[in-house]
């Protein structure tokens, strides 16, 4: 113990430890997801996060220390977003041919996400700063946080709501689409991208490459539309 303690002090502060923990937790979660046939409930984001959170609690490690290692993984979100251009170009004929359904689904999904969230939140008595943090939750974190702070919301709360929305959407999309008898992978993927941004897109790529490509399109388009729509919805809403 006397020798192990300084070693642990070193390891617990070392970014390498927490980077390794993140990757191993994901490897375990991914293997588990594969073992249950990619069942939506075995979502790799949730399983990995639960494993990591458990370890942080047991070792009493603060999130800031954890993130010094995990930031290298987090950083890869940028290049991964750029990489979404590749499946989009590879499926360009299918995407171009689906132009009208894409526009319709974008409008329907985006308006539904924003208005439902605001109306339910308002009916359940959420104050206006929380509503402003909630409204842009279906889009990717940097866009959502920008919208929230412009409307007087709490960007930190928005970041949390965005992640939870992504997880809810990624878990719900497969059973919901099956119940609806939705067989078109373009529609399934696009809906996942519009309603549940990158985490929904990650789920779509696990299910089907065409669904993944359409999810990427949905995520990008909804980011742009929500940036226009949410301030407009807030203007209308506060007029009543």
């Amino acid at each position: 113990m006397n020798e192990a303690l300084p070693l642990w002090v070193y390891l617990s502060e070392e970014p390498l430890t927490w980077l390794t923990v993140t990757v191993i937790a994901y490897a375990i979660a991914d293997r588990l997801a594969a073992a249950v046939g990619r069942h939506p409930a075995a979502n790799p984001v949730v399983v990995s996060a639960v494993l990591v959170i458990g370890l942080l609690q047991v070792t009493g490690t603060p999130f800031r220390t954890y993130f010094e290692g995990a930031q290298f993984v987090h950083f890869m979100l940028g290049p991964a977003t750029v990489a979404l251009a590749v499946p989009l170009v590879q499926n360009r004929v299918l995407v171009r041919r689906s132009f009208k359904p894409i526009l319709a689904a974008l409008l329907a999904g985006s308006v539904t996400a924003v208005t439902c969230a605001i109306l339910i939140g308002w009916a359940l008595g959420l104050p206006s700063d929380v509503l402003a943090s909630l409204a842009p939750k279906s889009v990717t974190t940097p866009i959502a946080m920008g919208i929230a702070s412009a409307l007087g919301g709490i960007p930190a709360l928005t970041a949390v709501l965005v992640i939870l929305t992504g997880i809810i959407g990624a878990i719900a999309v497969t059973p919901l689409m099956n119940v609806m008898g939705m067989k078109d992978m373009r529609a399934r993927g696009f809906a996942a991208g519009v309603a549940a941004h990158g985490i929904g897109t990650a789920r779509a790529f696990q299910v089907d490459p065409v669904a993944g490509a359409f999810a990427g399109v949905g995520m990008a388009l909804n980011g742009a539309l929500t940036a226009l729509l949410v301030p407009l919805a807030f203007l209308l809403f506060s007029a009543f």
Binding site: A105, A108, A113, A117, A172, A191
Partner: peptide, 21 residues
Amino acid sequence: ALVVSTVMALAAAALAFRWVA
């Protein structure tokens, strides 16, 4: 608000896609 709005948005987007397609 998160659960209901996300499920509704998924359904609305997919239904609109299928309808127009």
